[in-house]
Design a binder for these strands. Structure first.
Lengths: 345, 345
DNA sequence: TAATAGCACTTTACAGCTGAGAGTGCTAAA
DNA sequence: TTTAGCACTCTCAGCTGTAAAGTGCTATTA
């Protein structure tokens, strides 16, 4: 008996949430009886609603209004009530997405940016994408290219291409051959370490300078220290797309909060940390845990991986009442498509 | 007599515009007599206002409201009525700006981004910055670095550093020496041409393939064609900062319009063309000429130059009633500081 | 003759009121 | 256990009246 009651409650909760997602108004008992074939009178629905409210799944904006889902309600809906739609939508979107990403020649930056753009187009919400964490990328080679009397182009290369380059100016004039020797020296030290390790190693080498016999190498080491990037530096790579969709679903204060958050490096760092720990598509309902004043917003986000290394993130930010049933598969699929395209290149 | 009247009208027009900038309300005749020591009665002010309205410098939002400036009024104010403030403000801001830009090591991208950030901070409006047009940059050298069996890193270098790099995968295995020869070959053709010229030249060379004797060179030529950037491609470099300031001065529709415009490459292209033709700081009052639906917005924008080449732009977008007297010098000074820092590196 | 004071008129913004509509909880009956 | 009925609550849109701000016109003044 208890079980039967429970399933009914679940059904009604689902009905309320789906109705609220569709209509964006507080949902009353009569509306439910009209939209769903429960064969129950409004009064019965009301009783159940009262119970659901006690349990914290729904709430009233004010006395004598319909109910709207709480965050707990959405959470429960997403985790256990919502039926998967992944296949039906994909066939259509999948083509479109693939063709959009397919036209980009294998430049990972543009690819990630285009993924964000597509996602914002499909979802009509704000899309964000962050590139893979660079701290864990393996450094393949450090190369110095002479291109003027004293000017040298320093390039740090990983499996995935150029991580960073910078023109440096040396005190003395060196030949390309000397530079090659120096870079060989450095490469034996650093190659196949992660960027994080390289940074630590450089600091250590500089600390006990004695170990470095060659003056040029010592110089270059100091330059490397400056050039070596860190996750924290390079958030310019964040793609966000669809800011023009923003005003549709939020008020001024929220626009402000969102844009500030996204401009803010620390927020993005926090985000990355939260997400890249666990793989797959995740939903954050009501984001006040991560960033205050975003509490009426949700984020659907997924990770993609770039070759074998650490994963980047793509996702959307939208109102808490967004259509999770449609959007979760879209985000999921976008991330998978990204992983696929990036890995085959 | 006519002259005397004219100067009075000018004074009153200035008073109206400055009051409106300060208070953001329609300005009535009594308010003017209170805020300015004209020694005239409100009735006289009213008569003058009626004349100014006939002439199109001010208008009433509705019958029996105070007057607000028209675009023509702002234009006249900026061009002839506004007294320069450049020195007084600078001493303070100049330090702050220099210290902010000074901490950035000479990476032009970050520098431009930081300039936009500072500008948005100082102005409390939306700041934008576009890097120099790349079409007119001189290509210094094209270099191919082998780093795996078939994988080669192609780097296009100008005076200003790496323009573009990309990993390419060749069909055959070549030694670094072969690559060097090939790149020497290409360099004799392309070095010291502008990017635009190089693009044309590559197209021409590919067209009449016979001239190319070496198979490797022919291959690389095709890769170069893909890699060589164009102005239109690379608008990801646009910096905008202070989007969180946006909601303060515009309504939802405008937020939407602005953000869409800025995400839109074509808009930025149009902007660049309009501006980089003439040097110095310019003001666009009411921007509907450039982008429809931005008509209640103005843009103060200035150009900076990166070494001897084409200039980039920095500026702010704000409400038509922004404080031009303060902001024009700020934008102007930011552009000059950028030019200065970029040129000394 | 230019500047001013006075006055009637206009328009907006705002607060307060009202009725319709939607929804609830409770109670009594099926 | 479910349902019908009912009194009650709350919001929303629309209307009204009033105070405030500002104007243009006209008669008067220096």
């Amino acid at each position: 008996m208890m079980t039967k009651l429970d399933t009914r409650r679940k059904e009604i909760l689902r009905a309320i949430i789906q109705s609220h997602i569709d209509l964006n108004v507080p949902i009353g008992s009569i509306l439910i009886t009209q939209r769903f074939p429960f064969k129950l009178s409004p009064a019965t629905i009301r009783n159940t609603m009262a119970r659901l409210e006690e349990m914290g799944y729904i709430k009233q904006p004010h006395r004598s209004a319909g109910r709207i889902p709480t965050e707990k309600g959405y959470r429960f809906y997403i985790d256990t009530l919502m039926e998967d739609q992944s296949l039906s939508v994909n066939s259509d979107l999948s083509r479109e997405l693939s063709s959009r990403l397919g036209t980009i020649n294998n430049d990972s930056k543009s690819l990630i940016r285009e993924a964000a753009r597509s996602l914002s187009l499909f979802s009509r919400y704000l899309a964000i994408a962050t590139p893979p964490k660079i701290d864990d990328i393996l450094v393949k080679r450090i190369k110095f290219i002479k291109y003027d009397r004293r000017k040298v182009l320093a390039v740090i290369i990983s499996d995935e291409g150029v991580i960073k380059n910078r023109i440096i100016e040396l005190d003395d004039i060196y030949s390309q051959k000397q530079l090659d020797e120096a870079s060989d020296d450095l490469n034996t030290k650093f190659s196949d370490l992660t960027i994080r390790k390289v940074r630590e190693e450089i600091a250590y080498q500089i600390y006990r300078e004695k170990t470095v016999c060659n003056q040029l190498v010592a110089n270059l080491l100091h330059f490397c220290k400056e050039i070596i990037p860190s996750d924290y530096d390079d958030f310019s790579l964040n793609s966000l797309s669809g800011t023009s969709n923003l005003p549709d679903f939020v008020n001024m204060k929220q626009v402000k909060a969102i844009l500030r958050a996204i401009e803010d490096k620390r927020f993005m760092l926090k985000l990355l940390q939260q997400i890249s720990d666990s793989k797959g598509t995740q939903v954050f309902v009501g984001m006040e845990n991560i960033f205050p004043a975003m509490k009426e917003l949700s984020m659907v986000v997924s990770t993609f991986s770039y070759r074998k290394h650490e994963s980047g993130t793509v996702g959307i930010i939208g109102p808490t009442r967004m259509n999770y049933r449609e959007l979760i598969p879209i985000v999921d699929h976008t991330a998978k498509a990204l992983t696929h395209i990036l890995s085959e290149a």
